[in-house]
Design a binder for these strands. Structure first.
Length: 410
RNA sequence: GCCGGGGUGGGGUAGUUGGUCAUCCUAGAGGAUUGUGGAUCCUCCGACCCGGGUUCGAAUCUCGGCCCCGGCCCCA
């Protein structure tokens, strides 16, 4: 038997309904903030991703050559594509641009809990607004979106300038190494690196910086930060909005193009792969030949949110199973059409079963049964049976439709 | 790429000192029951991840691969 490719998943109807339910929640919050959906190609020129992230990521992508000899890659993330799209199509659109996307990405990695080779991201990009208000809005949106899903999480907000200011005298490669140590809380490694550079004077302040959760203290440790005022304003807006977060100046994010504010979200019950959100301010457009526009965005790891939420019940929507006899079949088709026109999920027998078997099937798959036999076909009424209460009555079709629609939130 | 644990009908399982038609539950189809359902009974459908090796004989032992789960690395 054929197996599905490693790291991919099949989704049965129950799970798809749960996923769509959470997806709708995310979309709704993004919509209320004014973010409109965009869509980019599933695959792009390989160069788009290597320009953004370096040649090293080729090993972790699905790379292929098409019949014209083009080097292409399945997208491992969406931000680069969105910025390319902005440069190609929307450079002159009125700023700021508020865009969002929900799309699948592909990475060639070892699967484990919460990590798959095909996975979905819900992300937003705010393009062309280079202000504290923009930074704050992005975090508020992230917070509201995660809240809407019902996931339990912790939001950490930081700023790269603090750490950068402390290590600005080191050469760039060493800066990256120090950042990596701090990101992993690898203090032994940090000390070893600093000792090899004869810069143990930095050890205490760096450790203190990534440990502190206090803004004033962080400024004290890191010294004069050009973005001081903006970050204070961002934090002020967050406090005013009631967003729950903690400060963390150890957030390094992997890539160099992040410029200032950064934030990450973590779920509690996910094990090793517990990051469900990551984002910050960045400048990427100039890499692709565009203007040096400032952007701010984040992506939510949709699959990890779903794993963290566990089994959630699908939305309660009414389902009607129609049971009919041979004499009632024509009338049953009319009744089904009326129910469907009213937006009600309606299923008829396709197995040529007897009335009793049709009802037995409906009892397993529906909330209501409507019986149409000779009597109903002649009278024009329908027999509506509530399969939960076993209550049954013969009423006009309109009354039956109204009663079914009154069931549940649907 | 590395370490550990796994893989038996659609789902869940029994079965390893190698030995007749591989166990049970559940789900599915049909019937008892051609105007009233989830009960009960009967029937049917359906599996040893793949390949090599050892053997008279492999679900069981062995090797390799594939896939799943957890962790490492990485995480844009």
């Amino acid at each position: 038997m054929l197996q599905k490719p490693r790291g991919t998943r099949d989704f049965l109807p129950d799970e798809m309904e749960a996923r769509r339910h959470v997806e709708r929640k995310l979309r709704e919050v993004a919509r209320c903030y004014g973010y409109r959906e965009v869509c980019t190609p599933e695959f792009e020129d390989l160069e788009l991703f290597t320009m953004r992230s370096g040649e090293g990521i080729i090993d972790e992508m699905y790379v292929f050559e098409d019949k014209g000899g083009r080097k292409l890659a399945l997208r491992p993330e969406i931000t680069a594509a969105v910025i390319r799209m902005y440069i190609n199509e929307a450079k002159v659109a009125p700023k700021p641009l508020r865009w969002c996307y929900f799309a699948d990405c592909f990475r060639y990695e070892r699967p484990q809990k919460g990590r798959y080779r095909q996975f979905w991201q819900f992300g937003v990009e705010l393009i062309g607004a280079d202000t504290a208000a923009a930074d704050a809005e992005t975090i508020m949106l992230a917070s509201d979106m995660l809240n809407a899903t019902g996931v339990t999480y912790e939001l950490k907000v930081g700023h790269l300038s603090f750490m950068k200011n402390l290590v600005k005298d080191l050469d760039p490669a060493m800066q990256r190494r120090v950042r990596a140590h701090l990101d992993k809380k690898d203090y032994d490694g940090l000390n070893a690196t600093l000792a090899s550079l004869d810069r143990m004077d930095l050890a205490d302040s760096l450790t203190a910086l990534v440990t502190t959760r206090d803004l004033a203290e962080a400024f004290e440790i890191a010294g004069a930060i050009p973005e001081k005022e903006r970050f204070e304003q961002t934090i002020g807006s967050l406090d005013a909005s009631g967003v729950k977060y903690s400060l963390n100046f150890g957030i390094a994010r992997g890539l160099d193009y992040y410029t200032g504010m950064v934030f990450e979200g973590f779920a509690e019950n996910l094990g090793a792969e517990n990051q469900i959100l990551g984002g910050g301010t960045y400048r990427l457009a100039h890499l692709f030949g565009g203007d040096d526009v400032a952007s701010c965005g984040f992506a939510i790891g949709f699959d990890r949110v779903m794993v963290s939420l566990g089994d959630i019940l699908p939305a309660l929507v009414p389902v009607v199973g129609i049971a009919c006899t041979e004499e009632g079949r024509t009338r049953a088709i009319e009744v089904a059409k009326a129910l469907r026109t009213a937006g009600i999920r309606t299923e008829m027998d396709l197995m040529e079963r007897g009335l009793g078997a049709q009802l037995a099937h409906a009892a397993k798959t529906a909330n209501f049964a409507i019986v149409i036999g000779q009597r109903e076909a002649e009278s024009g009424q329908v027999t509506l049976k509530n399969l939960t209460t076993a209550e049954q009555k013969t009423v006009d079709l309109a009354a039956a439709v109204a009663e079914v629609r009154a069931f549940g939130p649907g």
